[in-house]
């Protein structure tokens, strides 16, 4: 089974989101980068499927050359090769993202039985790249998947809705977008990291069209400043909490 996983390098934001002076970007100068959780689950799912059914896992990241850091990290957990869809670093809108990924897939030329993405990216959260890509590739798409198995070329996909699960079945080739909770992603091993250094990473330059969603600025929503009451971790502190619980009626 040939599997493609689309992953995106995003800043690792901590407790506060700091913007650049012009307010159009996150100030990433002091931040590390990572994959969004959903995409870690997508790579883990791909590696597990290939362990079970054979085949290979290809990774595709659109962005700057620095995406290689995240690609190597995921090659270390068992993916076989990677593609960078190289851009000038400006942020594409979701239509341009799907178009750029499509361009790189076409340029690469290899056919895939399964294309995996995250259900939404950590930063932009457009909820649409996978669906747009599926339309462009002429493939069916199931989104938001939290349970996945493949039998006789048919993917059984489960989506969590409350405590229920909706089941969808789709024959391959198909596009599937997955969520955190699908599996527990493994950590790269030392031998995995050593092997990853030698795995092929190819680059295709892609051109990004003018965005139709034009970002003017980013705003950190104002925090509702409330007076925090600091309590000691002792019986008096516990008594104060019990009193507060009673006041709001959660303890009789």
């Amino acid at each position: 089974m040939e599997i493609l996983v689309c992953i995106k390098r995003v800043p690792m934001v901590g407790a506060a989101l700091i913007l650049t002076d012009d307010g159009t970007e996150l100030d990433t100068r002091r931040l590390g980068f990572q994959l969004s959780p959903h995409e870690e689950n997508a790579v883990e799912a791909a590696v597990q499927l290939v362990e079970k059914h054979g085949g290979s896992v290809t990774l595709l990241a659109m962005g700057t050359a620095e995406s290689e850091e995240q690609l190597r990290e995921q090659l270390a957990i068992g993916a076989d090769r990677a593609i960078i869809a190289l851009t000038d670093g400006s942020e594409p809108d979701p239509q341009a993202t799907a178009a750029g990924l499509l361009e790189a897939i076409r340029a690469d030329g290899a056919p895939f039985d399964l294309v995996l993405l995250g259900s939404e990216s950590a930063d932009v959260a457009g909820y649409q790249t996978g669906i747009r890509l599926a339309h462009a590739l002429g493939l069916p798409v199931v989104t938001n998947v939290k349970g996945l198995s493949i039998t006789d070329g048919v993917a059984r996909c489960e989506r969590a809705v409350g405590s229920e699960r909706e089941v969808y079945e789709v024959p391959l080739p198909a596009v599937i977008t997955v969520r955190d909770g699908l599996n527990i992603p493994r950590y790269p091993s030392v031998p995995g990291r050593i092997k990853a250094r030698k795995k092929p990473v190819t680059t295709h330059e892609v051109t990004i069209g003018a965005p139709r969603i034009v970002k003017h600025r980013l705003v950190v929503p104002p925090a509702t400043a409330k007076g925090t009451t600091v309590l000691e971790p002792n019986a008096e502190g516990a008594a104060a909490l019990v009193e507060a619980f009673r006041e709001i009626g959660v303890l009789s």
Binding site: D123, A125, K215, H216, L218, P221
Partner: peptide, 14 residues
Amino acid sequence: ARWGGNLLEESSVT
């Protein structure tokens, strides 16, 4: 909303 609602984006849509 971006970043799970921790950041808001003001944009125009053509």
